[in-house]
Design a protein around this nucleic acid. Sequence first.
DNA 1: CGCATCTATGAAACCGTTTACACGCCGAAC
DNA 2: GTTCGGCGTGTAAACGGTTTCATAGATGCG
Lengths: 350, 350
Amino acid sequence: MSTIRDVARAAGVSIATVSRVFNDSSRVSEETVQRVRTVASGLDYWPNLAARSLITARTHAIGLLLPDLFGEFFSEVIRGIDHGARREHLQVLVSSSHADTDALAAAARSMRGRIDGLIVMAPDEGSAAAIQQLARRFPIVLLNPRLGSDGCCAVSIANFEGAHAMVAHLLSLGRREIAMIKGPAGNADAEERLRGYREALHEAGLLPAPGQEIQGDFSEASGYRAAVAILAMEPRPRAVFAANDYMAIGLLSALRDASVRVPQDMAVTGFDDIAISQYLSPPLTTVHVDAYELGARAIRLWAAAAASPQPQASHHEVLPTTLVVRSSCGSTHPSAADARSERRRTSAAT
Amino acid sequence: MSTIRDVARAAGVSIATVSRVFNDSSRVSEETVQRVRTVASGLDYWPNLAARSLITARTHAIGLLLPDLFGEFFSEVIRGIDHGARREHLQVLVSSSHADTDALAAAARSMRGRIDGLIVMAPDEGSAAAIQQLARRFPIVLLNPRLGSDGCCAVSIANFEGAHAMVAHLLSLGRREIAMIKGPAGNADAEERLRGYREALHEAGLLPAPGQEIQGDFSEASGYRAAVAILAMEPRPRAVFAANDYMAIGLLSALRDASVRVPQDMAVTGFDDIAISQYLSPPLTTVHVDAYELGARAIRLWAAAAASPQPQASHHEVLPTTLVVRSSCGSTHPSAADARSERRRTSAAT
DNA sequence: CGCATCTATGAAACCGTTTACACGCCGAAC
DNA sequence: GTTCGGCGTGTAAACGGTTTCATAGATGCG
């Protein structure tokens, strides 16, 4: 592993000159640049980034702290972050599966000296605040925080509006008994979606019945299990709004096993619009969330915060959602949004 | 941002003592340890990892180089790597979307000084060899390389065996005209799965007809498109083996649109056994691949290589695959493997 | 009491860079 | 022929840690 000293010796110059060649290149004669470059590539030299960051106090890397990651949604968020990071010439140090606040804080601490900032997704209660406190030394962007993430950049999803639009749509189709499969307790996204559901019912003059809200945890299995409770309800709901697509998939599967026709007997809708939703049977009416954009936007926000000198006001972006009407809700006229979303995914891999 | 010097001064000791407290803790009196610890936490001090790695020549971080990541399969691989890394107290520097060999090499170079090794997934032609060459300075583990990844640790999937078992199963059900939707050209996994398909047909005394092999690219859209070619075949195939589940999903969707009954008119099978396969309509017969284990195994292999002093012989592990028989293939008796796989996924998130 | 041994700590070298500053050289201006 | 400014380069001091070696004091033993 050759160092700057090896290159300097071999090229017959000082280490300062080699350093200059690899950085600003200012004030170095063309001839010297050439000689150093050839010697360096011959020795397979490349500056040691740890050493460089020690003196420059910039690492050009950011930490990414996530909850336990699963499925297409996270996959897309990471892809967005990765692409954004490449654009900004940033490296990404990732750490996930953080159940509680302490684990998050420990992960952040263990990155000290290696990163210039943090992107944190902590949908559970107040853990983001702790991180924000701990990491006051550098810019930090929150992903999908609870509302009122005080004094900190953040980008989140219009969960409330999306859920509200979805339930309003079901109501407009004449379905009045609408059950909901909730996401995990304490999860910010889940709570906002629940709030949107309740508000839409309320506006229609309907009282949200506690019995119509079934606990789920965002997994297909919990969606499948929820079917038992739903089929036992009196009167049986004419529609079910699942807080994410995975639970809707589990529910669809259970309804098929129970020979309940979708959408004739029961409408089913989800949230997220993961790639396979349009290929389900029946194709799933859902709320489109641009997970890729969520990640990409986070990087952009971070880069802006890092570039500006002053601490700057906390910037909070909200990513809009789109209602994607397919056939699982029994609508007679799929919306234009549907056709748009079909073209979304182009490349792919195993 | 307090340094070791600040702590030393505040605690009235030398920096060497502070360092000892945070490392081996050997030969420091209990009283001093206490004082340093309280002072350090009061100053919110934590060792700067870049500085530490400079002198110790160990970063406790590994680089993860991936192709463009998409969907559940990658998501699971990353999860396996993340969990494994946590167990080994390693950090993960991730970089994906590497189309060609040069991009891979550049990414590896740009991590110099920050990592102790590399985990590389480069399913496309020979790029792994270049990386292996470039990174001879430290341990490197290849994920799913082409066969004959000379002199380098690797862990791969039993693609050939899985595909072979699947096609043999379809043949055993009496289906003789079996088409295949291939994965992208140049992709190692795709080629092995194709080889397994051809071999199984060959063993049954059937000639693989080139017209029965349709080009796909692992995306749902390409699976959907393949349906056109398949439905036009004469005689129409009684079964289709898709090289991954996403393409099978696209195909199922297209067959539904064309009112072709699955499995009565046509059996459909996939590869990977992504989480939602069991919830499809009909539930998909597929080849189970433990993507999580693939990642976890890679970390374990890397850690073993890093721990051993000598360069050590290249270790190549092959992850077995399991045939998961559900109803999309028309089998009358779902196998025991099915029940096993149902319990696989427990926790989840949006 | 003298000496060897052990324990807790400090001084200083080192890791691989960047960069402020100094310096020598050359051509131009006076 | 000085003086001067710029250019190209080198010297050395950081950056924030770890670790070797030395040392001072305490202890054990004959």
